[in-house]
C-alpha cells in the first residue's frame, strides 16, 4: 500500500488520481501507524510553509516523516518542508535535507508557473529522461542548490528541482500534473 500523507488543505487527490491511473492503490491518511506501515510514502502539499508545519506538528507527523525508512517522495511544498528552514513564515522545517528554502527575488514574474526543463539531471527518479524533459511547476519559494540536489531547474536562479538522500526523494515540480513525463517519474519512484 502507498500512503499519501493528508495534513492540510489543497488538491491532494490529484496525487491519488495519478496513482490510480498508473494502476496503484493508495490511501490518503494522517494516521502515523498507517504511514509507518506503508511500502511507499508520498508527502504532497500546497499552501504556506508555516501553517503546514504547524499542521504537521499538531498531528505529530513531523517526527513520523523524519523517521521513515521506506522510500518517501515529497512533492512541491512537501520538498520545501523536508528542508532545513523556509523563508516563508521564517519557519524551521524537518531538516531531512540541509537546504534552505528562499523566496524568488527580483523583477520577474512570481510564482514560477508552468512547464520547465532541467539544467542538469542525475536522479534515479528520472531514469529514461534527459534535460529537455518538461515538468509542471507552481511555486514562489525554492530550495537552494546543495549536495543533495540531483536535478537543477533554472528560473531567475538555478534551484533544486529534485533532492535525494538515502530513502528520501523530493520534487519541486508536480509529477502528478506533468503528463507522460510525470507518469514516468512516479513509476520510477514506485519501482524503487
Amino acid at each position: 500500500m502507498i500512503a499519501i500523507i493528508n495534513y492540510n488543505a489543497g488538491n491532494i487527490r490529484s496525487v491519488q488520481n495519478a496513482l490510480t491511473r498508473l494502476g496503484y492503490e493508495s490511501v490518503l491518511t494522517d494516521d502515523p501507524a498507517t504511514i509507518r506501515a506503508a511500502e511507499k510514502v508520498i508527502f504532497p502539499g500546497v499552501g504556506e510553509a508555516k501553517s503546514a508545519m504547524q499542521q504537521l506538528k499538531a498531528k505529530g507527523l513531523d517526527q513520523v516523516v523524519k523517521s521513515l525508512t521506506q522510500p518517501v517522495l515529497g512533492i512541491c511544498l512537501g520538498l520545501q518542508l523536508m528542508c532545513e528552514s523556509s523563508e516563508e513564515g521564517h519557519v524551521d522545517c524537518l531538516g531531512i535535507f540541509p537546504h534552505k528554502v528562499l523566496r524568488f527575488r527580483g523583477e520577474a514574474i512570481v510564482p514560477h508557473m508552468g512547464w520547465n526543463n532541467f539544467e542538469s539531471l542525475n536522479s534515479a527518479l528520472c531514469e529514461g529522461l534527459d534535460i529537455t524533459a518538461n515538468v509542471y511547476y507552481v511555486h514562489s519559494y525554492y530550495a537552494e542548490l546543495g549536495a543533495q540536489t540531483s536535478a537543477v531547474c533554472h528560473y531567475i536562479t538555478p534551484f533544486s528541482a529534485i533532492l535525494e538522500k538515502a530513502n528520501f526523494y523530493a520534487t519541486q515540480f508536480h509529477p502528478e500534473k506533468s503528463a507522460d513525463i510525470g507518469n514516468l517519474i512516479l513509476k520510477n519512484f514506485l519501482a524503487l
Binding site: 487527490r13 490529484s14 488520481n17 490510480t20 509542471y136 500534473k177 503528463a179
Partner: peptide
C-alpha cells in the same frame, strides 16, 4: 476530469 487528465 480530475480522474482522467494529468495536466493542471
Amino acid at each position: 476530469i480530475a480522474a482522467e487528465i494529468d495536466i493542471p
